[in-house]
Design a protein around this nucleic acid. Structure first.
Lengths: 137, 137
DNA sequence: GTATTTCCTAGTAAATCGATAGGATTAATA
DNA sequence: TATTAATCCTATCGATTTACTAGGAAATAC
């Protein structure tokens, strides 16, 4: 299941992308428009900024803005920042790999094989989708 | 992330499918062979039985067995029983649909659109995979 | 210098997850 | 029939994660 964090983050990014103007967008504006708890959204946009996807400006007339064109913002990156690993199991994760402690031989594991397929399919969706596709820009 | 429940369940089904004999397989045997906590596995196999995927026999020489050929056991069914919805978000779930309370118009929701794609791709993997593929039978 | 915004740390209630405990029930077999 | 060996069932529990909230520090426009 997708966490609310990720869902809110995606909706916020979409909103910001649609704004398109050069002035930063306030958290409170996004929160109101998208029905997201403001303080929660604040923390989400902060992690998006720390990861480099968003930039920010403090103080009056401050807010958040995209650091790249929507066409350059790939879903693989966004999802990894917000949701973590794309794979359903750490032993098939490209970016967050971990060995299973119960599994003696990964090569022979039936779960492993199945989850590689799921991962590859999901990855293809996220690789072929940018924020521009989400926002219609 | 895949729950341990699902992972253990898949490994157990694979083990049982590979056994192939007509005698039921004991929980303790599967647990030992696959490094799964026995009591936890017991509860997992119980839900698989209640859903109709496994059958069981009580008492001495009892255990669990497949109710269909491995080629007939579809991953869509197994995953829905063990993990729940295949979709990452209830508003795109075919079998567990729920409306989002924060989203006024599903048609216009960017998250919705993206997650439909992910769902369809994942679904195709699970639809084209049976227990026979996992167990090599 | 005041209003307004992000930044940062901390905390918290509720749900979920992973697992365990213990006894009831059923069936084979000696 | 008594014993043993298995599933069945309910309940509980600790740890983790999730979805938020609180409150103040820092920066910036005017």
């Amino acid at each position: 299941m997708l966490s609310k964090k990720t869902k809110y983050g995606l909706k916020a990014l979409t909103y910001i992308a649609r704004k398109e103007g050069d002035e930063p967008v306030r958290v409170s504006e996004v929160a109101k428009s998208e029905n997201i708890p403001p303080k929660f959204l604040e923390s989400i946009l902060l992690t998006l900024r720390k990861s480099g996807i968003l930039g920010s400006k403090k103080g009056k007339h401050g807010g958040y803005y995209l650091r790249q064109e929507p066409t350059e913002v790939k879903m693989t990156d966004v999802m990894r920042v917000l949701e973590g690993p794309i794979a359903m199991v750490p032993c098939v994760s490209l970016n967050f790999y971990e060995k299973c402690d119960d599994c003696p031989d990964e090569e022979k594991c039936s779960v492993n094989k199945l989850m590689i397929q799921v991962r590859d399919n999901t990855l293809e969706v996220f690789r072929n989708t940018t924020l521009a596709d989400l926002s219609g820009k």
